[in-house]
Simulated scan of single mutants.
Amino acid sequence: MGRSIARELLRSKHHVLLIERKLEHVDPEAVADAEWILADACELVTLEDAEMQTYDVVIAATGDDKANLVLSLLAKTEFGVNRVVARVNDPRNEWLFDSAWGVDVAVSTPRMLASLVEEAVSVGDLVRLMTLRQGQANLVEITLPADTPLAGKAVRKVDLPRDAALVTILRGGRVIVPEKDDPIEGGDELLFVTTVDVEDQLRAALGLTAR
């Protein structure tokens, strides 16, 4: 996981440091342009030697939720790292991954995979794809049924709740940035950023049954 993330960041011209505590997992040839440190990222002295305070982002991406939480807390409280992203391996631990532990963004791999499966098979209901702003908002997807009562209606005539923003319409192979006069069609996949509090209002505005 860490090496894959590092390769993607290096392609975008970022400077990357990998901290790995197991010698057998250190593979500089696999990520040749990254710096490597053989040490335990949960040890304060390791982060001091790495000058963690000079980094813009820390990604805690191990397979151990406890280690990810400890690294997140140290990065935020001891070194003032601006942004801390942490991997959640067990969805039962999601409640821990918040600002109290120094986490700015929690990425739950199992929940994301489950959401993608649900998004692929769900029509006529709201699917949460990603949590944003430490749980204050969600990226959600709604696939409209073919017989939606909104068919032909302009975006501006859909009475959306205040805290819900339509950001993209996926239609066939097209990605549409919605304009106010664009029509809605049956089968459209609508992506919204919304707060949890107004999700039922959003369903109602789209002619769906509230949970």
Rank of each mutant, 00 (worst) to 15 (best):
S4P: 09
I5E: 12
A6V: 13
E8S: 14
K13G: 08
L18G: 01
I19D: 00
R21Y: 13
E24H: 15
H25R: 12
D27S: 13
D33A: 14
W36L: 02
W36P: 00
I37P: 03
D40E: 11
D40Q: 13
A41L: 14
C42D: 03
E43I: 10
E43H: 10
E43A: 08
L44V: 09
L44Y: 10
V45N: 05
T46L: 10
L47E: 00
L47K: 00
E48W: 15
E48F: 15
E48L: 15
D49Q: 06
D49V: 04
M52A: 10
T54A: 10
T54I: 09
Y55Q: 01
Y55V: 08
D56H: 08
D56V: 02
I59S: 03
A60F: 09
A60Q: 04
A60L: 08
A61K: 04
K66I: 11
A67I: 11
N68M: 11
L69C: 05
L69D: 01
L71H: 05
L71C: 06
S72I: 13
S72H: 12
A75H: 09
K76H: 07
T77M: 12
E78D: 08
E78S: 09
G80I: 12
R83M: 04
A86S: 09
R87E: 01
V88S: 01
N89T: 05
P91E: 07
W95Y: 14
D98F: 14
W101R: 08
V103P: 00
V105W: 10
A106T: 07
A106P: 08
S108P: 11
S108N: 12
S108G: 08
T109A: 05
P110C: 09
L113G: 01
S122F: 00
V123P: 00
V123I: 11
L129G: 02
M130A: 11
L132W: 06
G135Q: 14
G135D: 15
G135W: 15
Q136A: 11
A137I: 12
E141F: 14
I142Y: 00
L144F: 02
D147G: 04
R156H: 12
L160E: 06
R162H: 05
D163V: 01
L166Q: 00
T168P: 09
L170W: 05
R174I: 02
V177G: 05
D182F: 06
D182Q: 04
P183V: 04
I184V: 01
E185S: 04
G187N: 02
G187L: 06
L191E: 03
L191C: 02
V193R: 02
T195A: 02
T195M: 05
D197Y: 05
V198R: 07
E199M: 11
Q201P: 03
Q201Y: 02
A204I: 07
A204N: 02
L206A: 01
L208A: 02
T209L: 07
